[in-house]
Amino acid sequence: MVLRTPEGRPYRFDPGALCLELLVTGGPRSLTRHDVLDGPAGLVRWAGESRLAPGLEPLLTVAEADVRTAHAVRDAMLRITADRARGHRFDRPADATDFAVLNAVAAEPPLVARMGADGAREWAPGATGAQLLSTVARDAVDLFTGPYADRIRECSTSNCYLLFVDTSRPGRRRWCAMERCGNLHKVRAHRARQSAV
């Protein structure tokens, strides 16, 4: 995914999972000002930029109710992912509500992939917003219950709250993106060493 810094500079961010790509579209409370899921077109645009692309965007039909469901799924996943990244146990009543939202959407039929005449993956016609969200929710269930569940991280920079799953072999990823927060950390560390001399 290509995100932008507050100054407008683009940088690449790979959250490591489809479901975590939805988290950068906004969120509850203070994150609502960043919300790009402002209607059906916003959800279709997100799908076209996600790892599900190419070819999904023109096939996708999204209703207003799907946008409301997308907000509920995203907000539930944001809380679950942040809790997991911060090492919290899932034992509060809010967790059960978030799990219920995720499970209900995951129980719906997902998008249908098929093989095209050229042997490449393509999406079956008639794709709906509900199928898109089921696919995202199923990916979240797989992530939270799978082998990478303990590798969900929050960027180590103090003012960056991007969440990702560390799929690197050594499992030592610390930043959302090396070209953004990783480099900033290196510059600060270098300046600190220089000023200590």
Rank of each mutant, 00 (worst) to 15 (best):
D118C: 05
A94M: 09
A85E: 06
H88K: 10
H71L: 13
V101F: 09
V73G: 09
V112K: 11
D66Q: 07
A70G: 06
A107W: 04
A104W: 09
L111T: 10
A107F: 02
A53V: 06
F90W: 15
A106H: 02
D95R: 12
R89W: 11
M77D: 01
P54R: 11
A96V: 15
A76R: 07
A106E: 01
A117P: 15
R51I: 03
D98K: 04
A104D: 15
G119V: 06
P110A: 09
G119E: 00
V73P: 09
G55N: 02
W46I: 05
R74A: 03
A106W: 01
F90V: 01
D75S: 04
A63T: 15
R68C: 06
P109I: 04
E49P: 11
D83N: 13
A53P: 07
G119P: 08
A65P: 08
F99L: 15
P110Y: 08
S50D: 01
D95Q: 10
T69Q: 14
A85L: 00
P109V: 02
T69N: 07
W46D: 05
P93C: 00
A70W: 05
R68M: 06
D66E: 05
P58Y: 08
E64C: 09
N103T: 13
N103G: 10
P110V: 08
A76K: 06
A63G: 07
T97K: 07
A82R: 15
A70N: 01
L78D: 07
L111A: 08
V62K: 03
A85R: 09
R74Q: 01
A63W: 01
V67R: 01
P93E: 00
D75G: 06
G48F: 05
R86V: 02
T61M: 11
G119L: 02
D83C: 07
V67G: 02
D66V: 08
H88F: 10
L78N: 10
D75T: 00
